[in-house]
Design a protein around this nucleic acid. Structure first.
Lengths: 225, 225
DNA sequence: AAACGATAATTGGTCTGACAGATTTTGATG
DNA sequence: CATCAAAATCTGTCAGACCAATTATCGTTT
């Protein structure tokens, strides 16, 4: 459904500039006009890309001065980071390993029929989104959330929602930076999720926990090759 | 540092529209032109706000059709989550088992000297509070939080803080209901915590995780015999 | 009356050009 | 060399326009 907007190219192009020119944190990007000419688009498109980059915490604009690198995309995907606002993004994986694996285990143990239907519905949404070729991090997120919900334990949802924004930013950055839309990657992601849902369906607690752990591990590997 | 951009107001205004008009997921927002007139800004500003809202997964734009609600902002807030007392009790412990055990393991692995001192300080505070006979749930809480902090991973703190109110409620209820101030109970609690801190100090990862798990298990048993 | 299809109106996506306000650079002056 | 004002540069914002996709309208046909 989501056709590639022009700003996608600008977004990718700016990330590419940061990486290829090895711009450090704090370095200044080319001006909006210069970027517009580079990519042969209008300044409005460059601005849209910059707004998204800023929303992802990668750049920062200072009026009258320019746009600057706030955190390098590759460094956002480093394994460990010193305590700072931005590190909340990647560190979330460590927590997810234990949190979501346990959630999958409990969901498999306790799931009720309506909750299972809710999970299956989330799986259907993710499947159609992935197969249509569109970025599906929202559907991915929603499925994981529904699994957490299927534990019947609101504490999992509370913890999950607290980590949500950090997780989402990582997923977006990962999908935008790496070219993770190749058919085989999509098929793999789909299969991993289906294994999890299947394990919950047949109430295989250990299988669900294992599948979830495997999925997260692979996900982190996809983001940080 | 960050001046308030006009799009901040537009962003907030659109969120307000979704909430006040109770727009369900899938509902259509007013057109960009209409929003621009509402907020007395140009269409470019409204677009910038919508790009950020879309980036946050709240709205979705369809060319020629309009912008639509993708997920309601209020549903992203755990604050509204009704948490029955029972599920709060059981629930928070289930999550703490996996979350804090892993936090203790990582803290043992990665702790730096200042962080270790921070943990020891928390331990001292808990010890003197317990030995003075006063209710010590605040100090208990603080020690657990400092251990989560010693992981160096802010995501643990985020998750921990999200569960905090539920945990505190349980601890208060526990201390009020059971007369857990008998000298032997106090001594036991003290010893359990000291085992955890000691394991972190000598960087015994498995020991720390096990001690934390044991402590939480015993804690739940004390509350729900 | 219902189904259909061409047409018009609406809407998001993009472009151009412009101006204001903040910041940096320049350059003249002492 | 140090100082400071002018000039150049840059982001923030605006207005108006056109394109392409979607939706609504309405007359025609069955």
């Amino acid at each position: 459904m989501n056709q590639s907007r022009l700003s996608d190219h600008a977004y990718a192009g700016i990330v590419e500039i940061i990486k290829s020119r090895n711009l450090e944190v704090g370095a200044r990007l080319p001006s909006e006009s210069a970027l517009a000419e580079m990519f042969s688009v209008s300044r409005a498109i460059v601005r849209e890309a910059l707004v998204r980059l800023a929303s992802d915490g990668i750049t920062e604009a200072r009026r009258g001065a320019g746009s600057f690198v706030k955190s390098r995309p590759s460094e956002r995907l480093a394994a460990f980071m010193p305590m700072s606002e931005l590190s909340a993004t990647m560190g979330s994986f460590e927590v997810r390993f234990v949190l979501e694996a346990e959630a999958a285990r409990l969901a498999a143990t306790r799931r009720t029929s309506p909750e299972m239907a809710h999970v299956e519905e989330g799986m259907d949404m993710l499947r159609s989104a992935l197969l249509s070729g569109a970025p599906a991090h929202a559907e991915d997120m929603e499925l994981h959330r529904r699994i957490a919900s299927a534990t019947g334990n609101p504490a999992f949802l509370i913890a999950f929602d607290a980590l949500r924004s950090g997780i989402e930013k990582v997923m977006r950055a990962g999908l935008d930076i790496s070219r993770a839309r190749h058919p085989d990657v999509i098929a793999t992601m789909l299969r991993e999720h289906e294994v999890i849902v299947e394990a919950i369906r047949v109430q295989d607690a250990d299988g669900a926990a294992l599948a979830m752990h495997w999925h997260l591990w692979e996900g982190r590997r996809r983001l940080m090759p």
